[in-house]
Simulated assay, not measured.
Amino acid sequence: MLHKGPRLLELAKTPSHLQFNKFVLTGYRPVSTAQECLRSLFYMHNELGNIYTHGIPFFLFLVLLPFSIPWMEVDSTWLCVAHYLACLSPTVGSVLYHVFMNHVGGEHVYDTLLSLDMFGVCLVNTLGALPIIHITLLCFPGLQRAALLVYVLLSSYGIYCATTARTNVLRLRAFVWQGLFRFSLFLFRVFGSGVGSPNSLRLFVIMDSLAVLGGVVNIVQIPERFSPGLFDNWGNSHQIMHIMVICSIIYLHWGTLEDLAWIKSYQCPTE
C-alpha cells in the first residue's frame, strides 16, 4: 500500500458497536478522524476489502453503464434514469459506511452510516424494479399504475424497516415483501398476460437469487465461522456478499437491457 497505517486492534479492543462479527479477530482500525478514515484507503486492514469490492464497481458503473443504456431509443427516459441510479445506489452508501465506520463520532455516526448503507440497498430494490413493473404490465395501464404505487409504498415500508433494524436477520427480512412482489410479476409473465423480453426473466431470477444468497452468507458468517482469524482481511462473508451484490446488479442490468431492447418493437394486442 502507499503508506504504513496505525497499529491495528484486536476485536476485544474495538468499540462495542464495531464488534458485529466475532469471527473476525484482528485488523481493526482505531477510532479515527474523517481524514484518518480516508487515509485508511491506502493501508491494509480488515475493512479494505469491503471498501474496494464496492468502490471499484461504483466507478466502473458510473462511467461505463451510460454507454450501454439506450437513452435515446426508449420513449420513457425515466426507465433508463431509474435503472442507472438503481445500479449505483448500493455501492455509494456501502463505501461511505465502510470507510467512515470507525469515525470518532462513535455509535451515532456509525448508525447514521449504516442507515445510509441500507438506504442504498433499498433503492436498488425499489428503482431497479420500476422498469420490470412498467414493462411486465405494459398492456394493462390501470394495473400498471396501481402496481407502481403499491410497490413504492412497500418500498417505503422496507426502507423504514431496513434503516431501523438492529440485526442482519431483520434487515434481510425488510426486503421480503419487495421480493415477493417481484416474484408475483415473474409469475404473471410466465402464467398470466404479463409481457417482456423472453430472455430477461431468467436474468432477473438469477439477480434475486444472488442477492438472497449473499444476504444469507452474510448472516451465517461463512467461511470465517469455521476458521476464526483466517479470513480477517480477505475472503470473509461480508466481502463475499459484496461480490454477490455486484453480480446481482450486473444481472439486473442485463435483464433490463433485454427488456428495453424488446419494448422498442412491441405493440400490445388490440381487442
Score class of each variant (00 low, 15 high):
S248R: 05
R173M: 14
G235R: 11
Y52W: 12
I222A: 13
S209A: 15
V169H: 03
Y110D: 00
G128L: 06
T112P: 00
S76M: 01
L252D: 01
E107T: 01
M1P: 09
P6I: 05
S248P: 03
Q19E: 05
L213W: 04
I132C: 09
L60A: 13
F100P: 01
A129Q: 04
V81I: 15
C247A: 15
E47T: 07
H3S: 08
F231L: 10
N199C: 05
F231Y: 15
D208F: 08
D111W: 02
M241F: 15
S32G: 13
E36G: 08
Y266V: 09
T33S: 15
V74N: 03
S200A: 15
V169W: 05
L153S: 10
A211T: 07
T53P: 03
Y43A: 08
G158I: 04
L96K: 01
D208E: 13
R202T: 11
L116N: 02
A165V: 05
L85I: 13
M1Y: 09
L138R: 12
Y251W: 10
A261Q: 09
V124N: 12
Y151I: 11
L187V: 08
V216F: 08
L257Q: 10
R189E: 09
R189Y: 10
C122W: 10
P90C: 05
L41N: 07
L153E: 09
L143H: 14
C161W: 03
Y157A: 11
S16G: 00
P131Y: 00
D259P: 01
I250F: 14
R39T: 11
L230M: 13
Y52E: 08
M44W: 13
I249R: 04
H108N: 05
S197W: 10
V24M: 10
C139F: 12
Y84Q: 03
Q35E: 14
L114M: 13
R225Y: 14
S227A: 15
G196H: 04
G194L: 04
L79G: 00
E107C: 00
S115Y: 01
I206F: 10
C37N: 14
I250A: 14
V63Q: 01
L210Y: 03
H134R: 07
V217A: 11
